[in-house]
Amino acid sequence: MKVLFTASGEKVGGATLAMLHLMLGLPSQGIQPILLTPNTSAINPNLTKKLMQKGVKIVEGRHRLKGLLHWLWLLITTLKLSRKLGVKIIHTHGPKEATVLGIAAKILGLKHVYTVEGDPIIETYINRSGPVATLVNKILFKTGLRLADEVVGCSRWMATHITKTYGIKATPIWNPIDHEKFSNTTTSHPDEQTILTAARLDKVKDIETLLHAVEDIEPMNRPKLLIAGDGPLKETLTEMVKTKKLQDKVIFLGHRTDVEELMAKAHIFILPSLYEPFGMAAAEAMAAGRPVIASNVGGLREIVDHGVNGLLFTPKNHRELAQHITKLLQDKKLWTTLSQNAREKSAIFKPENIAKRYLEVYMRCLG
């Protein structure tokens, strides 16, 4: 069975990364993944190499078309490539891809599986993107859902949200992670005074609450915070750090492709999101044996079991977050227990395990 995927952005975000990880596991189920991308430069070279070693066929357009020209190229190339290679299923993961490739699937008479990695309407609202962006996202999202033969939510929360909000049945399947990469971290005793977050710097990820929490911690116990990621709020957050006089404790690392190495050095991983359909970074941190402190929202509640492999806090409650950070920094026995349990649970997110669930969806889709 041949399944076509796409990676069409200039940067590989979490949604695309989840599909690349899925492709690592699908060959174990006898499925041939085909990746169509304008160019592979946005994908980590090590991941590209691993995909090829697993038998993933990568078709590279070698162009940098943008806007309407890109989507027209994607549509035409998908039509040609699917006929040529005998594709049975087109698997999409974003509203634009689901709409454009959903149309291609209808033209070709192929099945279309759409993995929903988030509700863009919620994201545009939180990020205050404006009415035009909200309307466009709403149209694309609903169109993509209607064009899909099978809809998958990246968590139980996401699947339930799709069904309740849009009246479309969705199957819950967690996102896979590159478990091998993160579980091979070599530092068993990380810096006990370093905490890490890795996220896009926007309203949704709520790094502001994390900065408030660091400020709340007594100066003599205050850890060093590493922030990996870039985004529209970088300048605002940088000014916030200066205002709070935390320059010696907060380090902005920018976009990083070596997050696994950062996790190996950090003592705790923190994800303070206001909204998180899944929370791949949290699952990756658990594979690295790092206890996770996360906001009690969306899919994070399915990854982090409070008091077992991590800790949950009320969204935007920086005092509660500060208490959790202090507790884990000071209680070595608790840290060790959470770390061991985190590693154990992370195995369920291995690509091979998630691929088994998708095989069921594909077979049901084909009848």
Rank of each mutant, 00 (worst) to 15 (best):
Ile76Phe: 14
Val87His: 03
His112Trp: 01
Leu108Pro: 00
Ile76Tyr: 14
Ile76Lys: 13
Ala104Thr: 12
Gly86Val: 05
Leu108Arg: 02
Ile103Met: 15
Ala104Leu: 11
Thr77Pro: 04
Val113Trp: 07
Leu74Asn: 06
Gly102Cys: 10
Thr99Pro: 03
Gly86Cys: 05
Arg83Asn: 07
His91Lys: 03
Lys111Ser: 13
His112Thr: 05
Arg83Val: 10
Arg83Ile: 10
Leu108Phe: 03
Val116Met: 11
Leu79Asp: 02
Lys106Asp: 01
Thr99Cys: 09
Leu79Gln: 06
Glu97Met: 02
Leu108Ser: 02
Lys80Phe: 15
Ile107Leu: 15
Ile90Val: 12
Leu108Cys: 07
Leu75Asn: 02
Ile90Met: 05
Arg83His: 05
Thr115Phe: 05
Leu85Ala: 02
Thr115Leu: 05
Ala104Phe: 11
Thr115Gln: 13
Glu97Ala: 14
Thr115Asn: 08
Thr92Tyr: 07
Gly109Cys: 12
Thr92Lys: 12
Gly86Asp: 08
Val100Arg: 08
Lys84Ala: 14
Trp73Ile: 13
Thr92Met: 09
Ile90Trp: 05
Lys88Met: 08
Val100Asn: 06
Ser82Thr: 13
Lys106His: 09
Thr92Pro: 08
Val100Ala: 06
Val113Lys: 07
Ile89Leu: 03
Trp73Glu: 04
Val87Arg: 00
Lys106Tyr: 05
Ala104Cys: 10
Leu85Phe: 12
Val87Gln: 03
Lys106Leu: 10
His112Asn: 12
Ala105Gly: 09
Leu75Gly: 11
Lys111His: 10
Ala105Asn: 08
Gly94Asn: 13
Thr92Cys: 11
Leu79Trp: 11
Lys96Met: 14
Gly109Lys: 08
Arg83Lys: 15
Pro95His: 03
Thr78Ser: 15
Gly102Tyr: 03
Lys84Asp: 11
Thr99Gln: 04
Leu101Thr: 08
Ile90Gly: 03
Leu79Val: 15
